[in-house]
Amino acid sequence: MKGSPSVNGARLRAVTNWVFLRAAGDSRPRIIPSRTVFPAVRKLETVFPTLQAEVDALLKTRNIPKYGTFDPVRAAQVSEDWKLYYAYMFGRPNELARTELPSLLAFAESTPNVVNAFVSILDPKVPLPAHRDPYAGILRYHLGVRIPKDNPPRIRLERDYYTWREGEGTVLDVSHEHEVINESEEPRIIVIVDFRRPMGVFADLLNRYCLWQKRKWAPQFVEAAKYDVMHAA
C-alpha cells in the first residue's frame, strides 16, 4: 500500500487519540510495571532464555530490514536506520516467525490484547530522536534481549529515564514524547510487544475497531522480513 499507517488518516487519528487519552485519564504514568497493566507477559518472560536464543539465531541468518524499507514516510521522521523484524503486526502473523521466533509468535497469537510483536535493533551510535507514537490506543512493552554492558542505551520519556537490562521488561506509554540516547559501541536488541491500552468499554470498542481497520497495513511490515537472508560464503 502507499503511504503510512502512522501518517495516513491524520484527522481521524487526532479524534480517536483524544478519546483514548481522555479515557486513560489525566494522570498517565510514563514508565509502568508490567504486572500492573500487562500481567499476561509473564508467560513470555518465563521463556526468556529460549526467546533470547531464537533472537540470536535470527540475527545470524537474516539481515534485519531498516524502518525505511517498509514505512519510509514515518522513518524519515524518526530514523531510517532503526532495524525491525515483525513477527506479528495488527493481528497478522509473519509465517516465517513460526520457525524463526516461535516463542514470540506463540505468545502474540495466544494473548488477545496483543497488537504487534517485533524485534527492535539499534546499531552502535544510532539514536531515535524525540517523537511521540502517532496512535494512542496502545501501550508498549520492552524486553531487553542483548544490551551493551558499557554505556548502555537508555530511553527518555518526558522527564523520566529507563535503561534496558537483559531479561528485564517494562511498559512504556509512548504517547508521551520519548527519545533513545545511544552512545554504545554494540547493538541494542530488544523485543517489543504492543498491546491495547486498558480503557473503558466505549473507548476499548473504538480502539478494537480502529486496530481492525489497520490490519490492511500488516503485509508491508511482515513481508519486509522475507527477502534478505544471509548467504554463507
Score class of each variant (00 low, 15 high):
Phe20Trp: 06
Asn17Leu: 12
Gly9Ala: 04
Glu109Arg: 03
Asp81Val: 01
Phe118Met: 15
Asp150Arg: 14
Val19Ile: 15
Asn8Lys: 07
Phe118Gln: 13
Tyr227Gly: 15
Arg22Phe: 01
Pro198Leu: 00
Lys60Gly: 12
Val37Met: 04
Val180Leu: 00
Val78Gly: 05
Lys83Tyr: 05
Gly167Asp: 14
Glu80Arg: 05
Ser175Trp: 15
Ser79Gly: 06
Ile64Trp: 02
Val174Trp: 00
Lys43Thr: 02
Lys60Ala: 07
Val171Asp: 00
Leu139His: 05
Pro93Lys: 05
Glu185Met: 09
Ile138Val: 05
Asn17Pro: 03
Ala23Phe: 01
Leu205Thr: 10
Ile138Pro: 01
Pro124Asp: 04
Asn8Ala: 10
Arg159Ile: 15
Tyr227Thr: 11
Ala108Trp: 11
Tyr88Gln: 08
Val41Gly: 12
Cys210Ile: 06
Thr36Gln: 11
Gly137His: 08
Leu96Ser: 06
Val229Ile: 11
Ala97Cys: 06
Ile121Val: 12
Lys214Cys: 06
Arg28Thr: 13
Pro153Tyr: 04
Cys210Gln: 05
Thr61Trp: 00
Trp212Thr: 15
Pro93Ala: 08
Asn63Pro: 02
Ala23Tyr: 01
Pro187Thr: 03
Asn151Glu: 11
Tyr141Lys: 10
Asn151Lys: 14
Arg35Trp: 13
His142Trp: 12
Phe107Glu: 04
Val191Glu: 04
Trp18Glu: 00
Arg132Pro: 00
Val15Glu: 03
Arg208Asn: 09
Val229Ser: 08
Gln52His: 12
Val191Ala: 04
Ala233Met: 09
Pro153Arg: 08
Asp81Gln: 14
Lys83Met: 14
Asn94Pro: 09
Val126Ala: 03
Thr61Gln: 04
Pro39Thr: 04
Ser6Met: 07
Lys60Thr: 15
His131Ile: 01
Val201Lys: 03
Val7Phe: 02
Lys125Met: 06
Val201Leu: 08
Arg146Leu: 08
Asp123Ile: 02
Phe20Asp: 07
Ala87Phe: 03
Leu59Lys: 13
Gly9Ser: 05
Ala203Lys: 02
Asn17Glu: 07
Leu58Asp: 11
Pro152His: 10
Leu58Ile: 03
Trp212Gln: 04
Phe48Glu: 02
Ile147Thr: 10
Gly144Ala: 06
His131Ala: 08
Ser103Lys: 04
